[in-house]
């Protein structure tokens, strides 16, 4: 490569797509563990303990995850700023909804909302986990922590709103990532788009079900 891939417009969209694929895979894995908290308290605690203490996950995969999240966020914002500069004078009359979906036009809004939620989520779950494992060295009751957080209806409300933003982001993001890496095929793309919509609905819905389950359980 003559220059870094991130120095060109096509390269940047490929990197956005690759980090997006990685985050979509992570979302699925996170959801599967969350689902365990509905099925079995012991199994959930055991897997949470494993995820929180396994050195490979903690010191290899977790840093990659954080890098992926921060990269996707910063690159997304950088692209947005560049894109705004590309049209210094706006149209007096513009009808963007005539030719593109709301989701595709507002990835920056849904994306930033998801990132704000992530900050709250880190404070709620990640920091207490780090504190217990590396600072106080106390045994952490992961299930107890989850159940206590979701007993609060305000928290459940915030989480549910965040899942709606996540769904909207994924509705465009899933199929867009394939297009960005150069995959658009007459035979497969229509199915891929349907799969994307299904993923965008089912994954956030799964997260929402877990939150609602624990709230109802606390009543």
């Amino acid at each position: 490569m003559s220059k870094g891939i991130s120095s060109t417009s096509v390269g940047r969209k490929v990197l956005m797509a690759l980090s997006g694929f990685f985050l979509m895979f992570f979302l699925l894995q996170h959801l599967l563990i969350n689902m365990l908290s509905i099925i079995s308290v012991d199994a959930f605690n055991e897997v949470s303990e494993f995820m929180g203490t396994n050195p490979l996950i903690q010191f290899a995969l977790q840093p990659v995850l954080f890098f992926g999240i921060i990269f996707h966020l910063i690159m997304g914002m950088r692209l947005e700023l560049q894109n705004r500069k590309a049209r210094p004078i706006q149209y007096a009359m513009n009808k963007p909804s005539e030719n593109a979906s709301w989701m595709s036009r507002n990835m920056i809004i849904t994306g930033v909302m998801i990132m704000l939620f992530m900050a709250l989520h880190m404070v709620d779950f990640f920091l207490p986990t780090i504190n217990a494992h590396y600072i106080t060295h106390e045994h952490l009751d992961s299930f107890g922590m989850v159940a206590a957080k979701f007993a609060n209806p305000v928290y459940v409300g915030i989480y549910l709103v965040a899942f709606v933003f996540l769904a909207l982001h994924l509705m465009h993001g899933f199929q867009s990532a394939f297009q960005s890496v150069g995959f658009n095929h007459k035979k497969y793309t229509p199915t891929l788009k349907k799969l994307g919509t299904l993923y965008a609905i089912l994954v956030p819905l799964g997260y929402a079900i877990v939150a609602i389950f624990h709230f109802v359980n606390s009543l």
Binding site: R12, K13, L79, Q82, N83, A86, A100
Partner: peptide, 9 residues
């Protein structure tokens, strides 16, 4: 020119 975000417009 700006970057493509696959809106399809």
């Amino acid at each position: 020119f700006g970057n493509c975000t696959n809106t399809g417009a």
